[in-house]
């Protein structure tokens, strides 16, 4: 009995199995569409990169997919701009529902989104802020250490908001020149369900005018920040709101305030 058991195990263990199979590539289109309230419509359709360099892609022409877009069930005329980019001159309206559909790789790809309302009661605590530098105060004096810029808005429903801060100067002057490479001109917070955000003076990299954009976003966008991994220990399929595809097709509505960072 012992010998039979051991032999049976050996046979079972030695049975051939295929190892190191290349992962099966599914040719799904990538949609990247941000419909911003008050702006014209634009989105892009692209292909994924396959791990297997010999993978077969569908023959579909990305710029001739003839996608259909509706606004509250009314068709919108789209223009292919090449490179998978499609545009419409029509402006996106808050509260409207947009549906996108097209065929790719013999499958119907669909996505839909509703444009959120514009942020309300969006305010900033100050219109300008003095930049912080080490020993950089006027006349070599000690600089002030100002309070952060506090942005507030109404958010009774715990919706998602994101703040994007962008220097808008044509030739921006960096605050600290010690950096080896130029710092980013644009930064953001993580999507928040709160109703305020504080920008600390240290976060600014440049002097001059800045746009403080507040976007009221859908959860579809917020989830992009919590999605996916990049190592063999943590890979999982990222979230998407595209059926038979990947990527994001989502609406948002923004308001802009201005802030000046001074010397």
């Amino acid at each position: 009995m012992f010998i039979v058991f051991l032999l049976a195990l050996l046979l079972g263990l030695c049975s051939c199995e295929q190892n190191n199979l290349s992962p099966t590539f599914q040719d799904l289109p990538v949609v990247e569409g941000y419909l911003k309230e008050g702006e014209s419509i634009s989105f892009k359709i692209s292909r994924q990169v396959a791990t297997d360099v010999s993978a077969n892609y569908s023959p579909d022409n990305l710029s001739a997919l003839n996608p259909e877009l509706t606004e509250d069930d009314t068709a919108i005329r789209l223009t292919a701009k090449g490179g998978g980019v499609y545009e419409a001159s029509q402006l996106v309206q808050a509260g409207k529902a947009y549906k996108l559909s097209f065929r790719y790789n013999q499958k119907l790809v669909t996505a839909n989104t509703t444009i959120p309302t514009k942020p309300e009661n969006y305010k900033q605590s100050v219109a300008s802020i003095k930049a912080f530098t080490f020993g950089g105060g006027a006349g070599g004096g000690i600089p002030d250490f100002p309070d952060p810029v506090k942005l507030t808005w109404d958010n009774p429903n715990n919706s998602y908001y994101v703040v994007v801060i962008e220097n808008t100067e044509a030739t921006p002057e960096a605050i600290n020149t010690g950096n080896s490479s130029p710092p980013a001109r644009i930064f953001r917070n993580q999507p928040t369900q709160g109703n305020s955000y504080e920008i600390r003076v240290m976060q600014f990299n440049y002097y001059g005018k800045h746009n403080l954009k507040l976007y009221h976003i859908n959860p579809d966008y917020a989830v992009l920040y919590s999605s996916g991994g990049s190592t063999s220990q943590n890979l999982f399929s990222p979230a998407t709101n595209i059926n038979n595809g990947v990527g994001i097709f989502t609406g948002m509505a923004g308001k802009v305030l201005e802030l000046s960072v001074t010397k």
Partner: peptide, 14 residues
């Protein structure tokens, strides 16, 4: 281990 079959980039708002 599990490897990706494909990949794509998405531009974020910033």
């Amino acid at each position: 281990y599990t490897a990706p079959s494909g990949a794509y980039n998405i531009s974020l708002l910033d």
